[in-house]
Design a protein around this nucleic acid. Structure first.
Length: 404
RNA sequence: GCGUCGGUGGUGGAGUGGUCUAUCACAACAGACUGUAAAUCUGUCGGCUUCGGCCUUCGAAGGUUCGAAUCCUUCCCGACGCA
C-alpha cells in the first residue's frame, strides 16, 4: 500500500491524497461502504460500484462466525468471495467489544447526544451482571455468539489471523471501543489494554504478512479526554516491531457529537502526516466535512444503507422519511438532479409504495441513492479542496442541508 | 314466518357484571438509527385538555343493578337451518 498526499487544505489538517492498494487506487478523502458480512446490505457489487464506491469494509467477528474465515480464505479472500474487485478492508471486531459488551441492551451507540459532561460519568457502578455478549479479559475478549450462543475467545492474535484469512487489503488492530459513559479511570485501563493489544496485533501481522500485501491500521482510542487521546495517538504512531510500524491509523471510540471534532483534531495533529487516517464508523454529512477539514482520509458508516433500508433518504435539503404520507402521491424523483439509478428511474411515490408494501426493492433503491449521495458528497468535498473552494462548498452545502 | 348463532374502535379479533377507551395483531400516523445483534426499534392511534383529568363509546332504544360491552325486553341488520 502506498499513500501520497496531493494537496493540502490551507490553514487546516485537511488533505487530498491517493491511496494505492493491491486491488486498485483510492482517491482520498473517500467514503468506504460497509459490507459487514461480505455484502453491502441489499446491494449487488454493481450497485455499490455504480454509486461511486471505491472501497468496501467487512467485519472480522461476523465473518468469523459465519461462514468462517477459512471458507472465505478458500474462496480466494473477501473480495473474490463477494465479487468485489476493488480495494477492501476489514474491521477487527473491536467495535463488537463495545456493541455486544458495554452497549449491549442499552441505549448507547456510536454517537450519543449529550451536552452536559456530568451526565457522561455515571454508568459503571457494578453492572457486571448486566447481560452482554462480549466480556473483556486481559488477554482478549470472550464473545457469546448472537447467532447460536457458542462462546469464542478472540485475542489480538486471533483477530489478525482471521483478518489475514479474510484477506482484505487493509485491516485493523483489535481494540476496545469504550463507552463514553465510562469514567476516566476505566478509560485509562481500557486504553492501556488497547495499546497492549495493538502491539500484539502488529507482531502477529508482521509474522503473517510474508507477502507484504496486507496493510495494518492501528487504532487510537482515549474517549473524550484530551490527554488520553493525545497519548494514544503518540503511542500508536510510534509503536514499532522489528522496525516496522502501522501503515495507517484508525480513530475509534463512541463520541458525544460535540466532542468529535476536538478529538479528531487532537489526534490528527499528532499522527504522522504521510500515513492515511480512517475515522471509524462516522458518517453524517456534517461529520464528513468536519473530519476532512481535520485531516481524515477515510470514513465508513452504516448509515447510508441502514437509513435506506429503514426508509430515510438523504437529500441536499436534509433527510426525508419516504414513508411519510405526503410522499404517497409525490411523482418526482428523490432528487431531480441526482445521477443515481434510483433517481434516474423512479419516483418518490413508487419508492414510498414499495416501503408501504414491504417490498425488498424498497431498501435497495433507497440504499442505492443514499450510498451514492454520501460517496459523492465526499468526492465533491475532495474536488472542492482541489479547486480551493472547500469553505464555500461546505457553507453552501450545510446551509441547504440544514434548511429544513 | 319459525328456529339457531352472531353484530366490539380503520380491519381482523379478545373481553361475557366492577381493575374497560376496552387485551392483541394488522393497517395508519410520527420518530429514531453513525467501525450493522438492525429489511430494525420506539411512540401515538375516540374527543377535549391548564396534562391533573373531563366527556363520549362496544348495532339501536328501553330496562335490571350502587355499577352494563357483559344480564333482561323490544327493534334493526347478517349468516345458517326448517317451512
Amino acid at each position: 500500500m502506498e499513500f501520497k498526499i496531493e494537496k493540502k487544505l490551507k490553514n487546516s489538517l485537511g488533505r487530498v491524497g491517493v491511496l494505492t492498494t493491491p486491488h486498485g487506487v483510492i482517491l482520498t478523502p473517500s467514503f468506504v461502504a460497509v459490507g459487514t458480512k461480505a455484502t453491502v446490505k441489499s446491494l449487488s457489487p454493481d450497485h455499490v460500484r455504480e454509486a461511486g464506491t471505491q472501497v468496501v469494509l467487512g467485519n472480522t467477528y461476523h465473518l468469523f462466525l459465519q461462514p468462517g474465515d477459512e471458507i472465505v480464505a478458500k474462496a480466494g479472500g473477501i473480495g473474490k468471495f463477494m465479487n468485489w474487485q476493488g480495494p477492501t478492508m476489514t474491521d477487527s471486531g473491536g467495535f463488537q467489544v463495545f456493541s455486544l459488551g458495554a452497549a449491549y441492551g442499552k441505549n448507547i451507540s456510536k454517537v450519543i447526544q449529550i451536552t452536559d459532561p456530568s451526565l457522561m460519568i455515571p454508568e459503571r457502578f457494578d453492572d457486571s451482571d448486566a447481560p452482554r455478549l462480549a466480556k473483556i479479559g486481559q488477554d482478549g475478549v470472550s464473545f457469546k455468539s448472537h447467532l447460536d450462543g457458542s462462546i469464542h475467545y478472540i485475542t489480538p492474535e486471533k483477530s489478525i489471523q482471521i483478518q489475514h484469512n479474510l484477506g482484505a487489503d487493509m485491516i485493523f488492530a483489535f481494540d476496545e471501543c469504550t463507552s463514553p459513559a465510562e469514567d476516566l479511570k476505566y478509560q485509562e485501563e481500557a486504553l492501556a489494554r488497547t495499546h497492549a493489544w495493538a502491539k500484539r496485533c502488529l507482531e502477529e501481522h508482521i509474522k503473517l504478512n510474508t507477502e507484504n500485501k496486507i496493510s495494518l491500521f492501528g487504532i487510537v482510542q482515549g474517549g473524550r479526554e484530551e490527554e488520553l487521546r493525545k497519548r494514544s495517538a503518540k503511542v500508536i504512531s510510534e509503536m514499532q516491531v522489528d522496525g516496522k510500524s502501522f501503515d495507517g491509523f484508525g480513530i475509534g471510540g463512541s463520541f458525544a457529537k460535540e466532542d468529535m471534532s476536538t478529538a479528531v483534531k487532537w489526534v490528527n495533529e499528532i499522527l504522522p502526516e504521510e500515513k492515511p487516517r480512517h475515522l471509524l464508523g462516522i458518517g453524517e454529512p456534517e461529520d464528513l466535512f468536519m473530519g476532512i477539514e481535520n485531516g481524515v482520509d477515510l470514513f465508513d458508516c452504516v448509515l447510508p444503507t441502514r437509513l435506506g433500508r429503514n426508509g430515510t433518504i438523504y437529500t441536499k435539503k436534509g433527510k426525508i422519511i419516504i414513508t411519510n404520507a405526503k410522499f404517497r402521491d409525490d411523482f418526482t424523483p428523490v432528487e431531480d438532479d441526482c445521477e443515481c439509478y434510483t433517481c434516474k428511474n423512479y419516483q418518490r411515490a413508487y419508492i414510498a409504495h414499495l416501503f408501504h408494501g414491504k417490498e425488498m426493492l424498497a431498501g435497495t433503491l433507497a440504499s442505492i441513492h443514499n450510498l451514492h449521495f454520501i460517496v459523492n458528497l465526499v468526492k465533491k468535498i475532495r474536488q472542492s479542496i482541489v479547486d480551493d473552494t472547500f469553505y464555500q462548498f461546505k457553507e453552501e452545502f450545510l446551509k441547504n442541508y440544514q434548511s429544513r
